[in-house]
């Protein structure tokens, strides 16, 4: 088993006493999917955003794809990580002034220095994989939320990443648009993509995850196999959280 993500004792404090991350350790192996769950403010977004350097931490150590990062946050190393790790955001964050295809080819052309024609071709392939190649020359505002999020996934895939991070990818979507995005992520999981997914979607998490990590107040409460976590979670706090999610 080749580990892709190793986090050791990550700690981040905002103000005295309040900790966004409290001694968080975890490992994600190649080809595996880790689902991170927890109430809002539990630090799950902060955690996955440290993986590509969008968030800093005060103590501990990260090892992403063999690149080590500590609290000094060496910019060159973070830049190396970002070229090999894709991220999908809750609010899509597509570039509104660029067409769908331009959104996808920006990084391959300007970061990997690929030829535009080559990037366009691969971009079109990714869009067809997501079932939205007919929208290639439209602008983000002309697409529905679900379509925009699938563009965001294609954009994250354009650099051929070895790890994908999803920060609540369906939380900003209309209920009837959630499944088209979850299906796209399921497909990626079947293809063996290594992923860390922050989500509240229980049935999706059951399907897709190899491991579920439950967080509260910046601490890891438990890390379990999904079969165990969703039927017989080890901790009282996890069971209480799942009960509340069920009531929705």
């Amino acid at each position: 088993m080749e580990p892709i993500v190793i986090a050791k004792n990550l700690t981040k404090s905002y103000t005295k006493g309040l900790r966004a991350l409290d001694n968080v350790s975890l490992t994600v192996d190649r080809g595996k999917v880790l689902v991170v769950m927890g109430p809002s403010g539990s630090g799950k977004s902060t955690l996955i955003r440290t993986f590509n350097g969008l968030e800093t931490f005060d103590k501990g150590e990260l090892n992403i794809l063999g690149i080590r990062v500590d609290s000094s946050h060496d910019e060159k190393r973070i830049q190396k990580i970002r070229k090999r790790v894709g991220m999908v955001f809750q609010q899509f964050n597509l570039f509104p002034h660029l067409s769908i295809l331009e959104n996808i080819t920006l990084a391959p052309v300007h970061v990997q220095k690929r030829r535009q024609a080559e990037a366009d071709e691969y971009g079109m392939y990714l869009l067809s994989q997501m079932g939205i190649d007919s929208h290639a020359y439209k602008y983000p505002s002309q697409l529905s939320g679900g379509e925009q999020q699938r563009v965001a996934i294609a954009r994250a895939l354009a650099l051929k990443p070895e790890l994908l991070l999803f920060d609540e990818p369906t939380s900003a979507l209309d209920p009837e648009r959630i499944n088209e995005v979850l299906d796209a992520i399921r497909k990626l999981a079947e293809q063996g993509m290594t992923m860390v997914v922050v989500t509240h979607e229980i049935s999706f998490a059951k399907d897709v995850s190899d491991q579920v990590l439950f967080m509260d107040s910046g601490k890891v409460i438990e890390t379990s196999h999904p079969d165990i976590f969703f039927s017989n979670a080890k901790h009282e706090r996890s069971r209480k959280f799942l009960n509340q999610l069920d009531k929705h």
Partner: peptide, 27 residues
């Protein structure tokens, strides 16, 4: 320009200068 736009170009490995010129300034 929203913070998300900065995070999006950073997460794609674009340098601060390139991201500023291509993503932030046009908006």
């Amino acid at each position: 320009v929203s913070r998300g736009q900065w995070e999006a170009f950073r997460s794609l490995g674009l340098s601060e200068r390139k991201g500023f010129i291509r993503i932030i300034l046009p908006q």
